[in-house]
């Protein structure tokens, strides 16, 4: 099944009296279980692409099917629901809530929308998956950078989403810790998760199975890698 399919995805912004074409008709398909890296210099449109694929934004033109469902024309609340159920986000700056402990941060998506079952148990399982069980009661400021990103990854996993979007996941980490995080993402991909990662670091991108190069709002180059670990 195609997790992502876009057709002629376009996004323009009005800046003053002129319009900026951030995305100029991108067509892309990502199969279930793929690990795709999106590369490009700043201003190339990769962040815009990320926001559209994450249902944080809606395209000016073109279509986007997530799990074969057209999500390009959903309302704000409907998009919130899609993000809640089907998408997990991993950010460069982790974006954990400082007042909540690790477990509570992971449980956050489960509190919104309709998720059955034991919230604590599910959050605890996700925490176990990233190997941080003993840190459950620690606040983000009591965790190292790598640990914080693991908690964030657990939060992205907890709802069993169709797609995990990672925005520069190693950008705020030293290279050793960054490598550990990348190993974890590759593991998750091997377990069947579909991951789309934005990065400008070629070494980081090399962990992905497919690398897309963006420039001026278009995908200008696409190549497959055989390195997966």
């Amino acid at each position: 099944m195609k997790i992502i399919q876009t057709e002629n995805l376009t996004r323009t912004y009005a800046v003053g009296s002129s319009t900026v074409n951030a995305l100029r008709g991108v067509s892309l398909a990502v199969e279930m279980g793929e690990f795709v890296a999106l590369m490009g210099p700043s201003g190339s449109g990769k962040s815009t692409m990320m926001h559209l694929l994450g249902c944080l934004d809606t395209p000016s033109a073109g279509s986007y099917w997530l799990e074969e469902r057209d999500v390009s024309k959903l309302s704000k609340d409907e998009r919130a629901e899609v993000r809640n159920n089907r998408i997990g986000f991993i950010f460069q700056t982790f974006n954990l809530l400082p007042r909540l402990n690790a477990l509570e941060n992971i449980a956050l998506p489960l509190l919104y929308g309709r998720h059955g079952g034991d919230v604590n148990k599910q959050a605890s399982e996700a925490l176990g998956r990233v190997g941080l069980k003993p840190r459950a009661r620690h606040k983000p400021n009591e965790l190292s950078g790598g640990e914080r990103q693991r908690v964030a990854i657990a939060r992205a996993l907890v709802t069993s989403p169709a797609l995990i979007l990672a925005d520069e996941p190693t950008g705020n980490l030293d290279s050793k810790t960054g490598a550990e995080i990348m190993r974890l993402l590759v593991e998750l991909c091997a377990e069947g998760h579909t991951i789309l990662m934005v990065t400008h670091d070629a070494k980081v991108a090399s962990h992905a199975g497919r690398i897309l190069q963006m420039q001026d709002g278009e995908i200008v180059e696409e190549r497959s890698t055989d390195v997966t670990a």
Binding site: G54, A80, R83, N84, F89, L97, L108, P109, Y112
Partner: peptide
């Protein structure tokens, strides 16, 4: 963050 993980308005 809350909106990203699914909080509605």
């Amino acid at each position: 963050v809350r909106m990203a993980v699914g909080a509605r308005g």
